[in-house]
Write a protein that binds this DNA or RNA. Sequence first.
RNA 1: CGGGGGGUAGCGCAGUAGGCAGCGCGCUUGGUUCGGGACCAAGAGGUCGCCGGUUCAAAUCCGGCUCCCCCGACCA
Length: 477
Amino acid sequence: MSKKNSREMDFSAWYNNIVLRAELADYAPVKGCMIIRPYGYGIWENIQSILDKMIKSVGVKNAYFPLFIPESFIHKEAEHLTGFSPELAVVTYGGGKELEEKLVVRPTSETIINAMFSKWIQSFRDLPLLINQWANIVRWEMRTRLFLRTTEFLWQEGHTAHADHTEAQEMTLRILSIYEGFMQSVLAIPIIYGRKSEAQRFPGALETYTIEAMMGDKKSLQAGTSHDLGQNFAKPFDITYQTKENKLEYVWQTSWGVSTRLIGAIVMVHGDDIGLVLPPMIAPIQVVLIPIWKGDEKEKVLQAIHSLEGKFVSNGIYANLPIRFHTDTREEFTPGYKFNEWEMKGVPLRVEIGPRDLKNSTVTIARRDGGERIIVKESKSVEVVISTLEAIQESLFDKAKRFMEDNTYVVDDWKEFKDKKGFILSHWCGEAKCEEDIQKKTNMTIRCIPINGNVEKGKCIQCGKESKMRVVFAKAY
RNA sequence: CGGGGGGUAGCGCAGUAGGCAGCGCGCUUGGUUCGGGACCAAGAGGUCGCCGGUUCAAAUCCGGCUCCCCCGACCA
């Protein structure tokens, strides 16, 4: 990778370069849109399969709702309408005729799902109703970036309805903690979580909770949100149920989601100047096998490779799944070329087998993170591969966590506040005006307000008025 | 929408006193190589973003348009 595109020199160019070169994605012919290529989509499929199980584990079921939403649905909730209006794509023609009612391409599905909830929910016995869908959505953004913000993107959106507010609030937080667990144990990305300020709240929500992760350039990325919708949608969509006591009540709702943006986060948190670094749990290829031979050694080497493949198939279980390995038998490239290519693509482990290994009954194992290379007995190879994958997963998280902690500061002085990069813990009086002024002056926003924030008296970093707790400020994507 | 950069072979780029469209990588064929991005030989590949103007002659000069990328505001 050329120097001008190094992580240090130009983070943004570095990021784009990796996404394109590792073949995660490509620019689409349509402005602001992207093609997710097989390698990038493979990461998404792994995210989906793991997160989907986690979501289902709390009783949520998958369903699918239409891409098109009648325009009138969007108009039913006032804040939702004003929040999303500027970024809607609207279909006005269909089948060659102007439509009687315009159709909005979903920017999120609260409205159309709630229209159905209203029909499906009659009794307290129908509650809670817990639905998730994996879908694509469209938001007409001014400025786009591969994976981080595109006109169309993929996500999961959960929508639930409950009999009372407490239960809905619990659901909101339960999902938040699922997201936290997923980020940390699967993507190896440490996060902080908390409430959003009113200004950053989801349009139509009572409360928005967020998980925020620190990227390699110390900016924050909102990695997922979970909303307590209260009865804000239940009322306009008339979602009522009969209680045991035969009274009619509105339901209490939540919605929550994470998107393909997470792939961008993986790149920006773990990647380096060599290229992508993938946490083993979501890597489409966890181990790449590279045969090395000269002249007539080919056959013997391939034999050894096949025998190793057999061992992976029969004994190679990592994270409760068969190890995903790939053997690179291309003859048109030298081993050195292959080493570089697979490192750029972020494959966690490389196993080399060459004449030297054959002679000693060994294999050579190289780690993508840190580049350490060890020689192990062939008989131990599968078990070492498994334990090394585990070690890499853990080490990536530790490294990212250290980075986040090293760039988190408690700040009470304006000059320091203005100059520091990272997560800044400072006092805020709670006024939207101060939040706005701070953003104008420093480009930083309130990323989150700690949920059980330690009550600590202090003075607002902007206006100096009394403050009850510190909040997290940062520049954000 | 404001500011900056760009559109020439698949990719990355060079190419102004206007005068036959180039380089590196990649690609095809054959051969030799193969433990950190191999080498030799022979090939294929371009309406120079679009429209118009100036000129004997335009990638190059002039006018207009368009698309893309980056930085900001909006936002996941």
